[in-house]
Simulated assay, not measured.
Amino acid sequence: MGRGNHPHFRWPRGSKPIRIKSETGTVEFQKEYTLLLSEAKRGIAQVSAKYTMSGLIESYQQSERWNALSDRTQKDYQKVLDFWSEKTGARDIRRFERKHIIAAMDANKDAVRFANYVMQVARVLFEHSIDLGWRKDNPAQGVKSLKMPKAKRLDREPWPAEKIKAFRARYAFETRERLLFELCLGSGQRIGDVLEMRWSDIEGDAIRVVQNKTGKGLLVPLTSDLRSALVSHRSINAASRRQSVFVLTNARRSGPWSYRGASQAIRNAREAVGALKWDIHSLRHAAATELYEVGCDIPMIMAVTGMSEKMVRHYTARANQFTLASKAQLKREK
């Protein structure tokens, strides 16, 4: 505050000075000073609120970056955005440093995949803050992912033929478990895409898929087992008082079967047939393996599953190794 009978008010330091009209030492001066100080603090608080993590998340979810994400990716991101909002919502994002990102990852180190996702989503958020002009750098850039402990690494294997046979023997075509099983195995698609399939996606003797993760559009011919399961459930749906547009519907037939509900049902089924070692995603692995074992080449497997060449090679590596080893041993015996 400047000197004289009519000093200037300046707060915080570096802001534009405001001349106080009342003379110093008067009641009016004190009232005017108190009002100016209150308004300045309120203004600072409003500006600061914009730069909080909650403010950044809100801005990001209104951006084209967010709108360009698939529904599935948005759901995955939301879990991490909720974490950042809950833990650091009121913090000024301009004060975030690399160490804060690492600390958040360390706090979730028992769940390595989530911990790495915390960093990856933070990197996206701070990239958005740079676009907004709120920061000049990205504190999450260059932070290394945590490595999964060897003891916890899941060496996913395809469902073996005997377990597929056991599942089919226990669950009739009319059950939701069997329909989900045949959709995953027969189409070779991810469970997230399978749960979103609608009756209108069936075109003749094939089913149309648009993969959430990749955006690929596929028209996949039905296998005989999948065809039988679909015929059974189309009849059930037609006879129901409440008909669902979704192939896999919830118990009330008011919407799609939830991921949690479907996963739990399949887990119970896996336990019932002694297949806990093989999860539902392993059915996609099994689909690629079955195709390879009947002589399909990589482009053919890619056409059914929508996998990249790299993933096809990865998923069929075990079967390929055994095929090559068998040929080698036959040559050896000659």
Results as ranks from 00 to 15, higher is better:
157 E>P: 01
4 G>K: 12
277 K>V: 01
249 T>S: 15
329 Q>D: 09
248 L>T: 05
241 R>Q: 08
64 E>F: 03
162 E>R: 15
138 N>M: 02
105 M>Q: 13
333 E>M: 15
235 S>H: 08
18 I>Y: 11
91 R>N: 12
330 L>R: 15
223 T>A: 06
130 I>A: 03
56 L>S: 02
55 G>Q: 13
293 E>A: 04
133 G>Y: 10
296 C>A: 13
108 N>I: 06
95 R>D: 07
162 E>F: 09
26 T>P: 00
203 E>M: 09
50 K>F: 03
222 L>A: 06
186 G>V: 05
84 W>H: 04
138 N>E: 05
59 S>V: 02
272 A>G: 06
302 M>L: 01
332 R>F: 01
283 L>A: 14
277 K>R: 15
91 R>H: 14
89 G>I: 00
274 G>H: 07
81 L>K: 06
182 E>A: 04
148 M>H: 10
34 T>C: 03
154 L>G: 10
200 S>V: 13
158 P>K: 11
4 G>I: 00
286 A>P: 04
44 I>W: 10
99 K>C: 03
190 R>I: 07
13 R>S: 11
69 L>Q: 15
249 T>Y: 14
65 R>Y: 01
76 D>K: 00
263 S>R: 14
12 P>V: 05
171 Y>G: 07
285 H>E: 01
63 S>T: 12
79 K>P: 00
14 G>E: 05
139 P>V: 04
55 G>H: 12
28 E>K: 08
169 A>D: 10
86 E>M: 02
196 E>Q: 14
44 I>N: 10
219 L>A: 05
206 A>W: 02
239 A>E: 11
259 Y>M: 07
176 R>M: 08
85 S>N: 03
21 K>E: 10
294 V>P: 00
166 A>H: 12
308 S>H: 02
223 T>S: 15
304 V>Y: 02
316 T>M: 05
197 M>R: 10
143 V>W: 12
147 K>Q: 09
158 P>R: 13
147 K>C: 05
108 N>T: 07
321 Q>V: 12
94 R>F: 03
208 R>F: 05
232 S>P: 02
119 M>D: 06
107 A>P: 09
256 P>E: 10
97 E>L: 08
39 E>L: 11
244 S>H: 12
265 A>S: 15
1 M>Y: 09
271 E>Y: 03
147 K>T: 03
286 A>L: 08
239 A>D: 14
275 A>I: 05
66 W>F: 07
317 A>T: 04
126 F>N: 06
56 L>Y: 07
182 E>K: 04
115 A>D: 08
71 D>I: 11
45 A>M: 08
291 L>N: 01
117 Y>I: 00
21 K>S: 10
194 V>P: 02
65 R>C: 08
144 K>F: 07
324 L>F: 00
217 G>D: 11
106 D>V: 06
221 P>H: 00
34 T>W: 00
193 D>Y: 12
108 N>M: 14
278 W>T: 02
91 R>L: 15
66 W>A: 14
